[in-house]
Write a protein that binds this DNA or RNA. Structure first.
Lengths: 221, 221
DNA sequence: GGGTGGATGTGGACACCGTACACATCGATG
DNA sequence: CATCGATGTGTACGGTGTCCACATCCACCC
C-alpha cells in the first residue's frame, strides 16, 4: 500500500488531474489540457473531474496556477544567483536584467506553461488598484522590489520610478510573446539570445532615462 | 437581382465566409471563427467551406490576413496624421510615438482582431532572415522606415539603430497584450491611457539612449 | 457496530465541433 | 446540346464539454 493521504476512491484525484494537466500543457499549451484527456490519463471517467472542478475552465485555472508558480520560481532563482561583490547600483541593475532575461528564457524553454500562465487573466475586477492574481503577484512583486532597490541604490532616479514596472514588464513580455508566437520563433537560438539581450538592455535604458552607468560605477582596475 | 459577380451557386462564397469570420472574430477572437458558424451565417452547408479552404486553420488564416490589413491601416492612418511643421528630428520621434500608440489603441479597440492577427504566426521558416508574413510586413516595414527616418533626422544615433525595431515592437506589443489579456484590462480607460503613454515614452528613450530632446529641438515660442 | 448520508466516481445522453465520403447540381466549354 | 469539372449537399464518425440519474464507498453517529 502506497496509500498515505488516500481519501475516498481514488486518492487525491484533484492533484492527479492537475499534474496530468501540467504534463499536457507543457507540450500542448492551454488547448491541450482537456477534460477527457486528463481523466483518461488518471484512469477515471470524464465526469469524475466535475467533483473537483466546476468546469474545464476551472481545471485550466488550477493548472495555470501551478505553471505560474513554476514561472515565479524560475525568475527568483535567476535573480538570487546574482553574483555578489558588485557596487550596489550596478548590482540592482543586474538584478533587473536577470528578471527580464529569466522571464524570456522561461517563455522559450517552457512555451506551453508560459502560454498557460498568461492565457488565464480573466475573472473580475476584484479590488481597486491593479490587483493581480495571487499567483502572478510573486514575479510582479519581485519586479517592483527590484525597481525600488534600484532607486535605493541610486541607479534609478525617483522621479522615473512611477510606471517603470509597466515599461519593463511590457518590453520583456512582448519579446517573450514574439519569440514564442511571432516571427522570431524561427530564428536560431543564438539570434534570439542576441535579440533578447538587446531588448532587455533597451528596457533598462528606457526606464533609467540614460545609457550611462550610475555615478557610483567604480570599474575594478 | 443583386447579382453582379455572381458565379456558380452562391457567388463568391469564399468572400462571404471570410467576411462572416471577421464579424465573429471581432467580438469572439480566433476561437469564435468556426467552420459551422460561418457557413451557417452564409446559408450554406458546413462542407461547402471545404471548396474554398483546406480546413478550419486555412479559413482562420484568411480571416487573420484581413484583420492584419485593418491593423496596418489603423497604424498608417495615425502616422500619416502627424502634424506638419515640427523640426525634422522631433517629427521623426513623433511618428514613432504614433506607431506605438496606434498599435496599442488598435489592440484595445479591436481586441478580437488583434488576437487573431497575432495568433496566426506559424507556417514554416520560409527564408533566411526574419521573413515576416506579407501581411505583417506592412506595419513592421512602417516601423523600420520610421526608425530609419529617425536616424536620417538625427534623432537616433546610427550605432543605436540595430535591433531597435525589436525593442520597440516588444514594448508596444507587450503592453498591448497586457492591456488586453493581463491585469491592466480591468483598469478604467484613462488609467490605461496613462500607462500606454508611459510605456511608449520609455520605449523611445530606451531606443534613443537618452531622455533628452534632439539637438535641433527649437521650441516654438 | 451496524446503518445512513454525503462525498465521490460511473454510464448514458446531448449538442457542438471538424472533417471525410459519396452524391447532387449547375455552368462554362466543347 | 452533351459533358465535365467546379461547387454545394447529406450523412456519418470521432472528438469535445457538460447534464442527469445512478452506483459506490467512507465517515460518522446512534
Amino acid at each position: 500500500m502506497i496509500a498515505q493521504t488516500r481519501t475516498y476512491h481514488h486518492g487525491d484525484l484533484r492533484r492527479a488531474l492537475i499534474d496530468q494537466g501540467l504534463l499536457l500543457a507543457r507540450t500542448g499549451g492551454p488547448a491541450a489540457v482537456t477534460l477527457r484527456e486528463v481523466t483518461r490519463a488518471a484512469g477515471v471517467s470524464p465526469n469524475a473531474a466535475y467533483r473537483h472542478f466546476s468546469d474545464r475552465e476551472d481545471l485550466v485555472h488550477a493548472v495555470a496556477a501551478d505553471a505560474q508558480r513554476a514561472f515565479g520560481r524560475a525568475i527568483s532563482a535567476r535573480v538570487d544567483a546574482t553574483p555578489a561583490g558588485l557596487p550596489a547600483a550596478e548590482a540592482s541593475i543586474e538584478r533587473l536584467r536577470r528578471v527580464g532575461l529569466a522571464y524570456i528564457d522561461f517563455a522559450r524553454a517552457e512555451r506551453g506553461w508560459f502560454e498557460l500562465a498568461f492565457a488565464t487573466q480573466d475573472a473580475e475586477p476584484s479590488a481597486e488598484i491593479v490587483t493581480l492574481d495571487d499567483e502572478v503577484v510573486a514575479p510582479f512583486q519581485l519586479l517592483l522590489d527590484t525597481l525600488d532597490g534600484m532607486v535605493a541604490a541610486g541607479a534609478l532616479a525617483p522621479e522615473r520610478r512611477p510606471y517603470a514596472e509597466w515599461a519593463c514588464w511590457s518590453s520583456v513580455h512582448g519579446f517573450a510573446d514574439i519569440a514564442v508566437h511571432g516571427p522570431v520563433q524561427w530564428q536560431p537560438a543564438h539570434v534570439i539570445d542576441a535579440l533578447a539581450t538587446a531588448v532587455v538592455e533597451a528596457a533598462i535604458v528606457g526606464v533609467r532615462g540614460t545609457a550611462e552607468l550610475p555615478a557610483s560605477a567604480s570599474p575594478v582596475v
